[in-house]
């Protein structure tokens, strides 16, 4: 009898650990989706975009307008179809109008950081003015839950998981196997060399910004279904993406992917074992120790 009792406890504990692992995987897929665009911009253009989190919410708000106000038919498929070109144009113009003119300065990297910080301040408060301070919600792309014994998954989480990983793998493939992808990589690795062989560097920079804006906006549409759209949340999303990018190595997409899952898992286990309020402290310690050993992050090139 006594033996039975212990084994039941052990099984419960096992279930709990499996649950925490699932929570970590969910975190990880969310983070991967958040961070991949940021690492791309930095890798290719060496510009650091602090307004990144605000573009995340831009995607969410675009979808909200299309569903709530325009009443677009065709579900999320038509929404993605409608929003992607908007985000692309916004990202392209952003680079051309606001970032490119700064490149002529010696300390342009710092100036871009300052400029994009201002842009984030502008955009976040614009959202408050236009949409109000209250959070908005999007309907889930897929309703319902999947039950496997004791374990329950929402279809939304499953969708996020597969779209996140699938999207990033597809993106990596495009980067390695298409003309434009290779041009982007060439610029990232050697901007001068790329120019000599006739790749229009300026246009690649702008295109990279545009692609990254599309990716983060896409992430925004998807994740807002789970976490809702809050006008001032851009900063928190930015910081999360920043930590993941830095931890994985800025510019390394694969590094970002690993980092997202490591951090997601760590947060789940720290929250479970020590308490949710220790998440941020643990994250910082992890980041610091990693950077002391590897200043360029997990997979970054020094």
């Amino acid at each position: 009898m006594h033996f039975m009792h212990i084994s039941e406890d052990t099984i419960l504990l096992l279930y709990e650990i499996v649950d925490v692992i699932i929570s970590g995987l969910t975190n990880g897929s969310v983070y991967a989706l958040m961070a991949v665009g940021l690492t791309l911009i930095y890798g290719v253009t060496k510009a650091f975009n602090f307004a990144y989190g605000s573009f995340f919410n831009l995607g969410g708000y675009c979808a909200w307008i299309l569903i709530g106000i325009v009443g677009l038919a065709g579900g999320y498929f038509s929404i993605f179809l409608a929003v992607v070109p908007v985000l692309f144009v916004v990202g392209y113009l952003l680079e051309k109008v606001l970032v490119a003119p700064l490149r002529k300065y010696e300390d342009w990297e710092n100036k871009v950081m300052m400029m994009t910080l201002g842009l984030a301040l502008f955009m976040d408060n614009l959202y408050v003015v236009v949409f109000g301070g209250r959070v908005k919600s999007l309907p889930p792309i897929l309703e319902g839950t999947l039950e496997i014994g004791q374990l329950v998954f929402t279809y939304l989480d499953i969708t996020i998981f597969f779209l996140s990983i699938g999207g990033i793998l597809l993106f990596g493939w495009l980067l390695n196997n298409t003309r434009i992808g290779m041009a982007v990589k060439a610029v990232a690795q050697n901007p001068e060399g790329a120019r000599i062989v006739g790749i229009p560097k300026e246009r690649i920079f702008a295109a990279t910004f545009a692609i990254s804006t599309v990716m983060v906006g896409f992430g925004g549409i998807l994740l807002s279904q789970k976490y809702f759209i809050s006008p001032m949340s851009g900063g928190a999303i930015m910081v999360k993406s920043w930590v993941i990018t830095a931890f994985g190595g800025m510019g390394s997409i694969r590094g970002g992917l690993y980092a997202a899952f490591i951090i997601g898992m760590m947060e789940a286990f720290v929250g479970w074992g020590f308490g949710m309020s220790y998440g941020m402290i643990a994250l910082f310690i992890l980041l610091l120790t990693t950077l002391v050993v590897r200043p360029q992050g997990l997979m970054g090139k020094s």
Binding site: E16, D19, V30
Partner: peptide, 20 residues
């Protein structure tokens, strides 16, 4: 008894304990 910071939106770790 759990004290959480604002911005906590992933509850899996707490909920699994609650379920136990």
């Amino acid at each position: 008894r759990e004290t959480v910071p604002y911005g906590t939106n992933e509850w899996g770790a707490i909920l699994t304990q609650i379920r136990r």
